[in-house]
Design a protein around this nucleic acid. Structure first.
Lengths: 152, 152
DNA sequence: TTGCAAAGTTAGGTGTTGCTAACTATATTA
DNA sequence: TAATATAGTTAGCAACACCTAACTTTGCAA
């Protein structure tokens, strides 16, 4: 029951972990500078975050060293990425929102919604897109397009 | 262009404003103690928040005085309440989630989603519930209930 | 190989949001 | 109206998440 390990991550730390996941996923090693750019924070802030994530045993990190995810870190990061993906998919595929808005909104909402909501949302997307009896997403697109038109 | 007025509210301040809205809505005057209880924070924290909201001209407040919303405050508060309601309705009426989970999730997500997302979500709820051609919400309920059953 | 630019860290500071403890003001009620 | 309980405030502190400026380390190129 190591104290550093058990408390759940802040939204901020989730963001760091998510970026590290994406950077190390694409072949690259996660470099401090890229993390900073990815999140729009200073390099100094990244150093602080890396220390925290390292204390929580989510990343392997030593000053001036390379950053990699631990097994636990990868699991945690993937949970966040999955939440993000479900939300983004919902915003785009069900609500028909613009891709940029969808991504930004997913980034902010992914920290606020628990597994119960995300899981149900995933089911909902599956249900609507797999549904044989009429294309609900398309119908909705027509619905809100009509709504937005001027009355004339 | 008063500096205090233009910056947008933090999630915290939105929460305070929302509680004040609800308290003053139900006939009562918003009392510091009730705000504290409503948000689960100390009375001292409430005092600090009231000062901030007062500086932003969202509430009328003087030490030891009564708290009321200004016109601008009521408008801002109502925006937040509306976001909350749309989310809660979506979670309950579309996703079929438990009322408690729905309320908690709406409380957290209401600060993360902008008017574009909320507006589209409102349209979606309207579209699905008003739709003549089959009850999608009910079908989905059956869908995820079946999903959750053990395989045997 | 040395010498410089880029990357990373440290030190110190700010703003936000919360806390507790101790104080003051207000309201109740005996 | 005076005592006392309740409500509200102040002061002081802590955690978090960020910043800039100055420093150190690293790696590449001449």
């Amino acid at each position: 029951m190591n104290a550093a390990k058990q408390k759940q991550l802040s939204a901020s730390m989730e963001d760091y972990l998510e970026v590290i996941y994406h950077l190390s996923g694409s072949g690259m090693v996660a470099r401090s500078k890229d993390i900073a750019e990815g999140l729009g924070v200073s390099r100094a802030s990244v150093t602080g975050a890396l220390r925290v994530l390292s204390e929580k045993a989510l990343i392997n990190y030593k000053p001036y060293g390379v950053v990699t995810l631990t097994d636990r870190g990868r699991v945690e990061a993937y949970k966040i990425v999955r939440r993000h993906r479900v939300l983004e998919s919902f915003f785009i595929d069900i609500l028909g929102l613009d891709a940029v808005i969808a991504k930004e909104s997913a980034c902010r909402a992914e920290h606020a919604l628990g597994q119960q909501v995300i899981g149900r949302l995933r089911d909902y997307i599956e249900f609507i897109t797999a549904r044989e009896d009429g294309d609900v997403a398309l119908e909705f697109k027509q619905f809100y397009h009509k709504k937005q038109l001027p009355d004339a």
